[in-house]
């Protein structure tokens, strides 16, 4: 049941933020420091998510070779400017392939 509450709370919070941007006074963006901060916050959060999901299982740090190789394949695909879905397919394909091969 509490997973449902987390889902609804997340949805409500995300919607409130989307709406806040549309109704907020435009002068909030006038301060260049605010603009820069809000530019880089997503970079920090997304990197943290990639890092934690790459090398952690719950609170334990673990190195999963197949998963890291899959992320490596995603990086290679991004460097080659592959489309979004190709990047995902490369990551899952490499991870699944290595696990199937018993790595």
């Amino acid at each position: 049941m509490s997973v449902w509450i987390a889902i609804l709370a997340t949805a409500a919070g995300c919607y409130a933020l989307k709406l806040a941007g549309l109704v907020a006074p435009q002068r909030v963006l006038a301060d260049p420091r605010v603009r820069r901060f809000t530019d880089v916050v997503p970079v920090a959060l997304l990197t943290a998510l990639v890092a934690v999901q790459a090398v952690a299982d719950g609170r334990a740090l673990e190195v999963d070779g197949a998963r890291l190789a899959g992320l490596g394949a995603a990086v290679a695909a991004l460097v080659l400017r592959a489309p979004f879905l190709v990047v995902l397919a490369a990551a899952a394909g490499v991870t699944a392939g290595l696990r199937f091969a018993g790595a």
Partner: peptide, 19 residues
């Protein structure tokens, strides 16, 4: 087994890449 656990971080990586 089919590598679905890597999709989460891969999506973030793709969203993050241009930035």
């Amino acid at each position: 087994a089919v590598g679905l656990d890597v999709l989460g971080p891969a999506v973030f990586l793709a969203l993050l890449w241009p930035r």
